[in-house]
C-alpha cells in the first residue's frame, strides 16, 4: 500500500460545555508512515489523549465536536466510517493501550472472559480456538501461568500484570498500529521499564507501527524514533528523536527539555517554563505559546504560526525563514 498509514490533516476539535466552547485540538497535521515509531509529548491538558481518542472516534459527541479536518487510516476516511467499519478499525486496524490498568479492565469479569469478548469481536469462534489464542496473547506479553490467569479477576492482579493484559487485549485484533496513551504513567518506576521494553519488543516482533503518547520525554526517547511535541492543542515541533533531543528548536521544546531533572547535579532544581498552560476556552490569540515565550515578536500575538519545514518541522514565527532564507532569531 502506498501513502501514510495514518494521516491527520487540519484536524480541529472542540468540546462544548456550559461555560462555552473549548478549542482542544487546534489544527493538527500529522502523518505516520508504516513502521514508524512516533512519540507524542506534551503537558497534561495539551490535547494528546483527546487526539488519540479522536483517531478511534472514542470522544463522546456531544460534547466533543469535529470542526474541520480529516483523519485517514490506511487510506480510509475514519470520520466517515459507519458502525461495522468503525468496529473493524478499532482493534483490527488500531490497537489501543490505555493509561490506568486499574480502571480500564472490567472489575466483574475474568481476564479470560474479557479477552474472549475482544477476540469474538474480531470474528474468532469456538471455545478451544478462543482459549488457544488467549493463551498465545498472554504469553506474547510475557505473563506467567497464562492458563490460571484466564480465570482470575482484575483485582487479583498487580498493576504491571493488568497493563500487560491491556496490551494483550490491544493486540487481540492483530492491529497494524499500536496506539499507547500514557501506558506507563500509572505504574511503579521499576515496572515502567519492563512494560516499555515489552512494547518495544512487540513492535519489533509484529512489525507494528507505534504511536506512543506520554508527558515523559524519557519514556518517549527510550523507544520512539520520531518525536512530536504538542502545546495547547497544536503540534509545535516534529523531528527525529535524536535530532530533537540534541537540537531542540521550538522555545517550548527547549523549555521542556530544560525541565528534565539532571541526575548529575541532583541538588540543582531543573528550570521550568514560566507561566502556566492557557485556558482552552479563551486561548491567547496568535501563537498560543507567546505569553510564556522569550522570543515573542509582534506577529506572534496576531497570527498563529504554521508547522513548516521538512524532516524537522516547527511552528514558530521566530524560527520561520524570512525572505533571505534565514531564521529571524537564532535559537
Amino acid at each position: 500500500m502506498s501513502g501514510p498509514l495514518l494521516e491527520i490533516t487540519g484536524f480541529r476539535l472542540a468540546f462544548d460545555g456550559y461555560e462555552g466552547r473549548a478549542q482542544v485540538l487546534n489544527g493538527i497535521d500529522l502523518r505516520v508512515e508504516q513502521g514508524e515509531t512516533v512519540g507524542i509529548v506534551g503537558e497534561t491538558g495539551c490535547g494528546k489523549s483527546v487526539l488519540a481518542r479522536s483517531i478511534l472516534r472514542l470522544n463522546p459527541t456531544p460534547p466533543a465536536r469535529v470542526l474541520t479536518g480529516g483523519i485517514r487510516f490506511a487510506g480510509q476516511d475514519v470520520l466517515a466510517m459507519d458502525g461495522p467499519a468503525l468496529m473493524a478499525l478499532r482493534g483490527a486496524g488500531i490497537g489501543m493501550v490505555f493509561q490506568d490498568p486499574q480502571t480500564y479492565l472490567n472489575p466483574v469479569f475474568t481476564i479470560g472472559s474479557q479477552l474472549a469478548d475482544v477476540l469474538r469481536a474480531h470474528g474468532l469462534r469456538g471455545r478451544a480456538a478462543i482459549r488457544a489464542r488467549s493463551l498465545e496473547l498472554l504469553e506474547a506479553v510475557r505473563l506467567p501461568e497464562p492458563a490460571a490467569l484466564l480465570r482470575r479477576y482484575p483485582h487479583e492482579l498487580s498493576g504491571g500484570m493488568r497493563q500487560r493484559v491491556l496490551i494483550a487485549q490491544a493486540l487481540a485484533g492483530s492491529p497494524r498500529l499500536l496506539l499507547a496513551d500514557e501506558p506507563t504513567t500509572a505504574l511503579d518506576v521499576t515496572i515502567q521499564g519492563q512494560v516499555l521494553a515489552l512494547v518495544a519488543d512487540l513492535v519489533a516482533r509484529f512489525g507494528l507501527t507505534l504511536v506512543l503518547i506520554s508527558h515523559d520525554l524519557g519514556v518517549i526517547g527510550a523507544i520512539c524514533r520520531r518525536v512530536v511535541v504538542m502545546y495547547a492543542g497544536s503540534i509545535v515541533e516534529d523531528a527525529p528523536a535524536e535530532e530533537l533531543f540534541a537540537h531542540p528548536r521550538h522555545p517550548y521544546t527547549r523549555g521542556l527539555l530544560a525541565a528534565v531533572p539532571d541526575l548529575e547535579r541532583p541538588t540543582q532544581m531543573p528550570a521550568g517554563i514560566p507561566g502556566s498552560i492557557p485556558s482552552l476556552r479563551d486561548p491567547p490569540g496568535g501563537c498560543r505559546f507567546h505569553p510564556r515565550c522569550d522570543l515573542t515578536m509582534d506577529i506572534c500575538r496576531r497570527e498563529a504560526p504554521r508547522l513548516s519545514g521538512t524532516g524537522h518541522r516547527t511552528a514558530c514565527h521566530a524560527l520561520a525563514p524570512n525572505q533571505d532564507g534565514y531564521a529571524q532569531v537564532r535559537p
Binding site: 478499532r90 489501543m96 480500564y104 475482544v118 469481536a121
Partner: peptide
C-alpha cells in the same frame, strides 16, 4: 467508565 471505553476501543459491538 474507563473499562467501557476500553471495550469500545477494542472493537466490541455496542450491543454487547
Amino acid at each position: 467508565a474507563d473499562y467501557v471505553t476500553a471495550a469500545r476501543a477494542h472493537g466490541v459491538a455496542p450491543r454487547r
